[in-house]
Design a protein around this nucleic acid. Structure first.
Lengths: 232, 232
DNA sequence: CGATGCGTTGATAACTTTCAAATTTAGTGG
DNA sequence: CCACTAAATTTGAAAGTTATCAACGCATCG
């Protein structure tokens, strides 16, 4: 089903030598201290579409931040179904783990550039700088919120799920009313716990009732309040 | 639907004065430092069945730990549906929030005794003692894992959800194969994103196929491997 | 072209909800 | 302890929703 072996070989990312920590730590955080530091101690790695960044149960040695493109994290259920946990878009971070291993696999949904950060390095910095530790904690909290939102989404009807998904993507993309979906219908289906056919039909019906316009992966929201009303 | 006003009045819990922090912090953690500290700085409060501990969007001033009985946290969706986020049983903690407000409401599912801990006090301690901070972080991580598990559960069929739920409760209760459910069928339904009728029917069918025995809220697992097989 | 991947549409089957009613359980007062 | 009432749970039948199976359209690519 998946062709993710190729890139794996190129994955073990090199990262820069120890950064000028003290200077960074002692200066006032410019805007987003964590972001600055990540760029100092991380390396940008390119992944091609559908290639794997890491696999479930592998040692969680790295933390990631999307620079461009998109990434999906997912689990394969025992019966072969795939449940997508999250989509990560530019500026999103992922790969934060508390056990020593990744709890999901991660793949690029499009050609993507990703900042790869050694976890130990970052942890060490967090140990020295409370501000960094705090920002990491905030990230975790945000992740928790996101998952909670997902739970609420999954108890809804197909139409509500798709509508919620579109609203979410519109908010994250923030390109007015146009949404350029980076992921396939199958990805959306596996994210929403629906089949690809149901996603397709629901999009069509949303278009029929004039809430959106669909042309392949480009979606324009025509009636956002209607969408929001459908969110349940 | 809910009768939670009565207790609210009695809720604002008094907690003991500042504990002998230094002594505690400097000694070796006995077993579970956090548990010890919570009991020192917290107060046990009793809640009767179906009474509210806190409501969504209230200031999250307290942290809770179940002493006896059980607690449910939930949200009410815009259409009136209730989504239960989690059940908390003795020794479970809840009410950890990162924003200043609770993101769920909480009610006792049975008469319950709950250790109520002032959040500021605990946060102050965590600032002084890395061990406490670490344990709080672990709690958060565990919460995140739990929610992730829930997401996986919600994409499954009704039978898989109920089977998973029973397995989960059996593991947590750990009283051999007997499960004494503290919550109603409606609670279970709202937790699993099903209707009460579907939960009831599914239990009956699990009983018919000899996987479990049901007598009201007491459930005996007869064939755990069959249950596990159904988990998906 | 012909193959391949992706998305849409249709018909049917399976599953879950809804509505209604019967049955059991729990709580209360005598 | 029993009778009675309210609440909780189970069961049945019908309706609604989503999945499954199958076919088709439409691009891209060798």
């Amino acid at each position: 089903m998946l062709t993710q072996t190729a890139i794996r070989a190129s994955a073990p990312p090199t990262y820069f030598a120890a950064p000028p920590v003290d200077r960074v730590v002692n200066s006032r955080p410019p805007r987003d201290l964590l972001a600055t530091i990540l760029h100092l101690i991380g390396a940008v790695v390119s992944y091609r579409r559908n290639t794997e960044l890491f696999g479930e149960n592998e040692p969680a040695d790295y933390l990631y931040k999307v620079v461009s493109g998109g990434v999906r994290t997912y689990k394969i259920l025992s019966d072969g179904r795939r449940q997508i946990s999250a989509f990560y878009l530019p500026r999103d971070m992922f790969g934060l783990e508390f056990a020593g291993e990744y709890s999901c696999s991660a793949e690029a949904i499009s050609d993507a550039k990703v900042l790869v950060v050694n976890r130990k390095t970052l942890t060490a910095l967090a140990g020295r700088d409370a501000e960094i530790a705090r920002e990491l904690f905030v990230l975790t909290a945000r992740e928790l919120q996101r998952v909670h939102k997902r739970v609420l989404l999954l108890v809804k009807t197909a139409q509500e799920r798709v509508a919620s998904f579109l609203v979410e993507m519109a908010e994250r993309g923030s390109a007015g009313n146009a949404i350029e979906l980076p992921m396939s219908r199958q990805d959306i289906a596996d994210y929403l716990g629906l089949t690809i056919e149901t996603v397709s039909r629901t999009l069509t019906s949303l278009e029929t009732c004039a809430a959106i316009e669909v042309s392949s992966r480009r979606i324009v929201v025509r009636n956002r309040s209607a969408l929001n009303r459908m969110n349940g």
